[in-house]
């Protein structure tokens, strides 16, 4: 059976890789991002009618209902999965913490995804779909890295939210899991120096960056029927952090 999956942050990096894996599984992607990208447009050309796009800025916490769901995902389009992938990183040491930048990051990483979860579940209730929610979390929640305290705290919030969502909605068949990703070669970690990168990779069993494709394929597993009994979990895809 085909599935319709909402994915945020599809224009590049991990979101794009997740979209590719969803399409490879034979499902449809409802992708949102601030901007369209040539890479996503190429997917739309390659899979006609299966790759949808809606420009949406995740800073818009109050626009989730009317814009994201009202315009892009009406009840007439059954929703089988929601992948909360888009995020921003505000990196600094704690003593430099700026409240405005912290709030902006919480809007994008936590508040908008929580509102989107609200409407995704409502959507699933309406269409009686046993849907799957996957939040992309980060290994920084579990290990700690200098400069990532604020960012990690947003992902930790999602892990707690996911666990409780799973408990609350399990009896309606709705599942919620977090994929705890290790450091990947994406724009988000682009500011790290080569030395910082190597130090991080050396803290993993595989001594290498986490592969986008591995994360993306695990997201597809969590969305699919093979994961029908998996909920409330944190699944680590991180090259084996030690």
């Amino acid at each position: 059976m085909s599935k319709n999956i909402l994915v945020t942050g599809v224009s590049q990096g991990l979101g794009l890789a997740i979209a590719e894996s969803i399409l490879a599984a034979g499902w449809n992607v409802y992708g949102v991002s601030r901007r369209h990208s040539p890479e996503y447009a190429a997917l739309q050309e390659k899979f006609p009618g299966r790759v949808h796009f809606h420009a949406f800025d995740l800073a818009g916490v109050d626009a989730v209902k009317e814009d994201l769901f009202g315009k892009f995902l009406p009840f007439s389009t059954p929703l089988h999965g929601y992948v909360n992938n888009a995020a921003m990183a505000y990196d600094d040491i704690v003593t430099n913490l700026d409240a405005g930048r912290l709030r902006a990051m919480y809007d994008v990483n936590v508040f908008t995804p929580m509102m989107a979860t609200k409407y995704a579940i409502r959507h699933m209730l309406f269409n009686r779909v046993a849907g799957s929610i996957v939040h992309i979390s980060s290994i920084s929640v579990h290990t700690g890295y200098k400069g990532l305290a604020m960012y990690a705290s947003t992902k930790g919030a999602l892990e707690a939210f996911s666990k409780n969502t799973a408990r609350e909605w399990g009896e309606r068949g709705v599942r919620s899991n977090c994929l705890v990703a290790g450091f990947m070669e994406t724009a988000m970690s682009g500011k790290l120096t080569e030395e910082q990168r190597q130090r991080i990779y050396n803290r993993t069993a595989l001594k290498q960056a986490t592969k986008l494709g591995s994360v993306a394929d695990t997201v597809v597993f969590l969305l699919g029927d093979g994961a029908a009994s998996v909920t409330g979990q944190n699944i680590f895809v991180d090259s084996g952090t030690i």
């Binding site: 009840f75 579940i121 409502r122 959507h123 209730l125 309406f126 609350e168 909605w169 009896e171 309606r172």
Partner: peptide, 13 residues
């Protein structure tokens, strides 16, 4: 409570 959530959604639609 979960039934009321479903009721809310159907009424809203």
């Amino acid at each position: 409570s979960l039934d009321l959530a479903e009721l809310t959604v159907r009424i809203e639609e």
